[in-house]
Computed example of a mutant assay.
Amino acid sequence: MMSFTVGDVVAERDIHLTRESLVRYAGASGDFNPIHYRDDVAESVGLPGVLAHGMLTMGIASSVVVAALGDTGTITEYGVRFTKPVVVDPADGAHVHVLATVGAVDETSARIDLKVTFGETTVLGKAQLRVAI
């Protein structure tokens, strides 16, 4: 059984997204909104460029914790606020950083707080998941 102490780092990881990542996610999710693959459409609606799917960013963040916990943890709750977009450059892609720390512990669960950033910008706010212990 894994023990959790407030402040401990559960996991930390950098994820590199490419335009190919977005195409693969679109195929898996069925979300073919052109703001996720066409610069001209993204720019025509006032966006700075092609954006990663919000749910892709959310999924990546939780997968970092799942990979760290393995079979030792069961996620019982997960929530985020989408605060800023992840702009995926056609040549360089985008780097997303996930830092997962223990925010609170009680008798039955631990709250894991996620700090998810793109450059210096936090892209998911109030990103927290609860793990049964």
Rank of each mutant, 00 (worst) to 15 (best):
M2S: 13
M2L: 14
M2N: 11
S3C: 07
G7H: 02
G7D: 08
G7V: 07
D8Y: 03
D8W: 02
V10S: 05
A11G: 07
E12R: 14
R13H: 12
I15D: 01
H16A: 13
H16I: 01
H16C: 03
L17Y: 11
E20Y: 00
S21T: 14
S21M: 06
S21Q: 08
L22S: 04
L22R: 05
R24V: 13
R24Q: 13
A26C: 09
A28D: 07
G30T: 11
N33K: 05
P34W: 10
P34S: 08
I35V: 15
H36L: 02
D39Q: 11
D40E: 15
A42D: 09
A42Y: 03
V45H: 02
V45F: 00
L47M: 12
L47H: 04
L47V: 08
P48A: 09
G49S: 11
V50C: 07
L51I: 13
L51E: 01
H53N: 02
H53R: 03
H53G: 03
G54W: 09
M55N: 00
M55I: 08
L56G: 05
L56N: 08
T57L: 09
T57R: 06
G59N: 02
G59I: 13
I60V: 12
S62L: 08
S63W: 00
S63Y: 00
S63F: 00
V64F: 00
V64N: 05
V66D: 09
L69W: 11
G70Q: 01
D71K: 12
D71A: 13
T72Q: 14
T72H: 14
G73W: 00
T74I: 15
I75G: 13
T76K: 13
T76D: 10
Y78S: 06
V80P: 03
R81P: 08
R81H: 13
T83Y: 01
V86C: 09
V87Q: 10
P90M: 10
P90E: 06
G93T: 12
H95Y: 04
H95P: 00
V98H: 01
L99N: 04
A100V: 01
V102Q: 05
V102W: 04
G103V: 13
G103S: 07
A104H: 14
A104N: 12
A104C: 05
D106P: 07
E107A: 15
E107Q: 12
E107N: 06
E107H: 06
T108C: 00
R111A: 14
R111Q: 15
I112T: 09
I112N: 09
L114P: 11
K115I: 09
V116M: 03
V116F: 02
T117C: 10
T117D: 06
F118E: 06
F118S: 14
E120M: 04
T121Y: 00
L124T: 08
G125Q: 10
G125L: 10
K126T: 10
A127S: 12
V131M: 06
A132V: 07
A132F: 07
I133G: 02
